[in-house]
Structure formats: C-alpha cells, structure tokens
Simulated assay, not measured.
Amino acid sequence: MFAQERQESIVNQVNMEGSVRVKDLSVKFAVTEDCIRKDLAILEKKGLLKKAYGGAVSIRQNPHMYNSEERKNTPNDERVMIAQKAMTLIREQDTIFLDVSLTSLEIAKLLRESSLQITVMTNMIEVLNILNQCSHISIIFIGGQLNQERDGFWGSLSVEMVKSFKLDKAFLGVVGVDTVTGELSTYHVEDGFMKAAIIQQTQMNYLLCEERKLKEDGSYVFASLNDVSGLILSKDVHTKMKATLEDYGLVII
C-alpha cells in the first residue's frame, strides 16, 4: 500500500470511529509506529485530523448557530426517527421534560396523536402550542427570560422554577457530543444552565442526537456523558464508537 492510500484510510477510519491509536494502526498496516506517527503529523498539517496522546482524533466542527426558523421548515427524517424512538421510552403517568429543540417538536406531535396520560413540562413555546388542546396531557410551562431566537425561555428564573420539580424523564437537545472527552455542548451559556438544572432534577435523561452532532461542538460545555442516562440516535454508529459510548454507562437507542 502506498503512503497516500494508507493516509486516506487513516482519515476515513478516524472520521468513522472518532479516534485511532498509533499501535493499532501500526498492526493494521504492517508498518512501524514511527511511520504511523509521521502519517499523523502530515495529516494534522493538512487539517484532516488532530494528533492526541497515543494516536489521533477527528477534527470537530463548530457550526456557530443554525437559523432555527430555517431548519424548522426543512424536512428532517432524522428528527422524526429520534422522536419515534423517544416515544418508546414514555410510559403512562410519566412526567417528562421537552426542552428547546426542533426534535422536541416532533415528539410533541407524536404525543398529541397518542392516548398517553402524562405530564409534559417545557420551556419551548411551540411545544406548548402543539399540546395545549390535548385533554390527555397536563402541561407545566416554564417561563423566564425569552431566549435570543424567541422560541422559548431560559435564565435564572427558569432554572429556579425547574428546581422546584422532580421529573421522570427528560429529552434534551444537544449541539455537540464529544465521545473522546465526554463533553456535551450547546450554543448559549443560559441554555447550558437550563439543561444542567434539568439533568439534576430528572431520574432519566436522554440526549436527542442527530448523526452530525457526534462530529460538532457548541460554544459552551454544560455536562458530561457521565451525567446522562442515554443517547437517542438517528442512525447506527460504528461498533467502536458505540462501545466507547457504552463505556460511559449509557443506554444507546
């Protein structure tokens, strides 16, 4: 195998698995570890990966805030799939939290069509609008400071309101999930404070995770994978990445 072919294979592997080890690559390609280190140095200079102790990790993107109104009007099969999986976790008489997330809207739509007798707590205005005529659902709305995109509430008052409740399950949006460091991130500090408060008050916390979010980062780290119960994924992930997630004690759905 030529060096260029080996390097292309390394990039593909690190993008798929999130991280690679020098020792494993050396065995896989039947070359010395020094040879692999040189490959990684070349690939890092090209901006194709980032060297780390004993190996390398994938380059993560920071999307710097999507326009939620534009995304709301764009069909997204991944969000629908995640919502359908979330529904399998909700039981009669549960008290659940749906935070500000476009996937929360898909869950709310499915709840509206269901017969589940539950309580829904939310800080997202459109979730309230979807469920406010449902006789089988009790709604608790969290107010506070209107957020920057004007689709929900956050801030110190919102956090204090959340701290007054004990919840069965929470379904939380997330901007970035870093399987190497375990960091969970979002765009805004205030949104991060809100998510952290919800996690503290809830027995089971699930992240609503589109595939791209395993390769992206937000600007503010609000929790760790150790702090949540599971990930609801839109697609199956590579076996190695799944094993890494399960090492955190997570349920992968």
Rank of each mutant, 00 (worst) to 15 (best):
K45Y: 01
K46P: 04
G47I: 10
G47P: 13
G47S: 08
L48C: 02
L48A: 05
L48N: 00
L49Q: 03
K51N: 02
K51P: 00
A52D: 11
A52N: 13
Y53L: 03
G54H: 04
G54D: 09
G54K: 05
G55V: 01
G55P: 05
G55C: 07
A56E: 03
A56K: 04
A56L: 06
V57D: 02
S58Y: 05
S58L: 13
R60Y: 10
Q61D: 15
N62D: 09
P63H: 01
P63C: 03
H64E: 12
H64P: 01
M65E: 14
M65I: 11
Y66S: 08
Y66L: 12
N67G: 05
N67T: 01
N67S: 14
S68M: 08
S68R: 07
S68I: 09
E69R: 02
R71W: 08
K72F: 11
N73D: 06
T74L: 15
T74R: 08
T74F: 12
T74Q: 15
P75T: 05
N76D: 15
N76R: 07
E78F: 12
R79K: 15
R79T: 05
R79Y: 03
V80N: 03
V80A: 09
V80T: 14
V80L: 12
M81W: 09
M81S: 14
Q84C: 05
Q84H: 11
Q84N: 09
K85M: 09
A86F: 08
M87D: 15
M87F: 15
T88C: 13
I90H: 01
I90Q: 06
R91M: 14
R91T: 11
E92R: 09
Q93N: 14
Q93Y: 13
Q93I: 00
T95N: 00
